[in-house]
Amino acid sequence: MIAYAFKRSILAILVALTVSMISFSLLYISSDPAIAMAGETASDADIEAIRQLYGFDRPIVVQYLDWLKKAISGDLGKSYYFRTDVSHLIAERLPTTMTLGLCAIIFAIGLAVPLGVASAIRPNSIIDRVALFLSVMGQALPSFWFALILIVLFSVNLRWLPVSGSDTWLHFVMPTIVLGYYAAPAIMRLTRTGMLEVLSTDYIRTARAKGLRPPVVLFKHALRNAIIPVVSLAAVQFGFMLGGSIVVETIFALHGAGFLAWESITRNDLPTVQGLILAFSLFYIILTLIADLINAWLDPRIRIS
């Protein structure tokens, strides 16, 4: 087990390094960052001063190694735009995105698992069809449109919910629904498949034959087995969500890490974009590492192969 954990961790580190390299080089082919930093009303003198101050004239490899060395010690540089530490900036914005992501994944599971179970119990029933419809719709409705429709309905017309901001939990209701809705279909499909499989196994039939009450069979025996892959999928989805909440955060003015990423891209704020890509990737890598280790611990076959 330790050998497997070690091997798996090395892989994670290699992946993280590769990602850092890609994101670094990707953004360095960009247009002159000095111009973006200086802003629209800056003069040529401002731009030249910035270029020298931040060392944009050095070779790219030197700049990368320099950046990596500092990144390992937790120093992601200073944001060109805000002039504060990127790590500080990310730490400040990440809680909003985390809260949103967590609410959204809980919402997605809360919506998807019961629907998945229900449609597995009665395949091809009305519930199964509704579930299928909801899940296919989740793949076809552009998220910004869905978000704006919710705003018009619940904030402008009904006035039940605040339009934007992050002050109270009510502010998170609509963003949660929008973001969570897009994670739900995959979870629902997996739950349904898992349940169908488990329900057809011998021991469930045995449990039924023994005369156990259906709810007991369903929840105590079947769901418990079917849910394991769902949990690791949810972890993956959660990782995706952090990077994917740009549109949702922009519309609901949430000022999380996703919105910061988008704004930083348009401002050519390279250290921030690099820091965020790295942070999102690391988060995903760690999540999957943990999920893999748990799975290996649960299932000895994995760690042997």
Partner: peptide
């Protein structure tokens, strides 16, 4: 407050 999206500004 900063609200980037113009539809959100109008809705507010």
């Amino acid at each position: 407050r900063t609200i980037a999206e113009s539809n959100t500004q109008l809705a507010e």
